[in-house]
Simulated assay, not measured.
Amino acid sequence: MMKEEQPNEEDVLLGVVSHVLSFTLGEFCKYGYLLAFEKDLSDLKGLVDAASMYENDYEVLEGVKDPAVQLLLQSSDKVFNCSKTYLMINSLDEFEVMTNEEFNQHASNNYHFYVDQPLGQSYTELMEETCHLYFSLMHMIYHTCCQLDLGRIDLPDELFDDFYTGFLDVIDGCGTPTEDKNIKLLYDLLFELNQDMKRMEELR
């Protein structure tokens, strides 16, 4: 009996991207609820776990008037549209990709490396953490871009010598141009999320 052929790292990384974007959506949703629990949805604080509210529960947040929550929703729309476009241009089946445990595990490694869990106990503290969240999620997505660029899950140590400089260039829209359709799509998303982070900092 022939062994089933295992996907190479480049194929695995194509799936990892979708999971990374899914984690990003989940974080924006979670922080939207955490902020809303301090104001508009204060009656639900302590009764509902914000971490259990995923992107399918954005409908409730749409009725929240807080500008910070609305900005998180706008950022979520950008990530959602990016995710759908990514699946389309790569002819990927969303169900197959999102139910793949290997893809999820590698994306989870990126997520846990960059993203901290919320500790804020007040609206002011949570706003501070929300600004930091943008930065962390953009770091995670940029890390995934580097993996795509090299076709490697484990990045070489020397890449991190200029990692931060490269990251800042990309989110400011002045990174090295790329012909890779997937990296270009993610770079465009990173630039847009950076603009949203600046807007969030103004609301802080």
Results as ranks from 00 to 15, higher is better:
111 Y>T: 00
36 A>V: 11
153 I>V: 05
83 S>R: 13
28 F>G: 09
63 G>A: 08
144 T>S: 10
145 C>A: 03
140 M>F: 02
66 D>N: 04
28 F>Q: 03
153 I>G: 03
65 K>R: 11
144 T>I: 10
54 Y>T: 12
47 L>I: 08
109 N>V: 15
51 A>S: 15
47 L>F: 11
104 N>E: 05
87 L>E: 12
144 T>Y: 04
26 G>L: 01
106 H>F: 09
39 K>R: 01
43 D>H: 03
138 M>I: 06
105 Q>W: 15
75 S>L: 01
155 L>E: 00
151 G>C: 04
122 S>N: 11
119 L>A: 08
98 M>E: 02
125 E>M: 14
137 L>E: 08
55 E>Q: 13
71 L>I: 08
141 I>P: 05
24 T>P: 10
52 S>F: 13
55 E>D: 14
57 D>I: 03
23 F>D: 12
82 C>M: 13
44 L>N: 10
46 G>H: 10
23 F>P: 08
56 N>R: 15
82 C>A: 07
98 M>R: 13
69 V>R: 03
74 Q>F: 12
26 G>R: 12
130 T>G: 01
96 E>D: 12
157 D>S: 02
147 Q>G: 11
30 K>E: 13
25 L>G: 08
44 L>V: 06
50 A>H: 09
59 E>C: 06
135 F>N: 02
144 T>Q: 06
145 C>S: 00
37 F>Q: 00
91 S>P: 04
83 S>V: 00
120 G>K: 04
126 L>K: 06
102 E>D: 15
41 L>S: 00
103 F>G: 05
72 L>K: 03
115 V>S: 15
152 R>G: 12
89 I>S: 03
51 A>D: 06
72 L>V: 07
33 Y>F: 11
87 L>V: 14
93 D>E: 12
37 F>G: 00
128 E>D: 14
22 S>L: 14
107 A>I: 10
48 V>T: 01
85 T>P: 07
34 L>C: 12
138 M>W: 13
81 N>R: 15
55 E>F: 15
32 G>N: 05
59 E>R: 13
84 K>M: 07
66 D>G: 06
77 D>C: 02
65 K>I: 09
150 L>T: 11
28 F>M: 07
23 F>W: 09
155 L>F: 00
102 E>W: 04
136 S>D: 13
124 T>N: 10
42 S>Y: 14
64 V>G: 02
42 S>W: 08
129 E>D: 04
85 T>V: 12
81 N>G: 05
68 A>K: 02
131 C>D: 06
149 D>Q: 09
152 R>W: 03
117 Q>L: 09
67 P>E: 14
127 M>H: 02
96 E>F: 10
133 L>G: 00
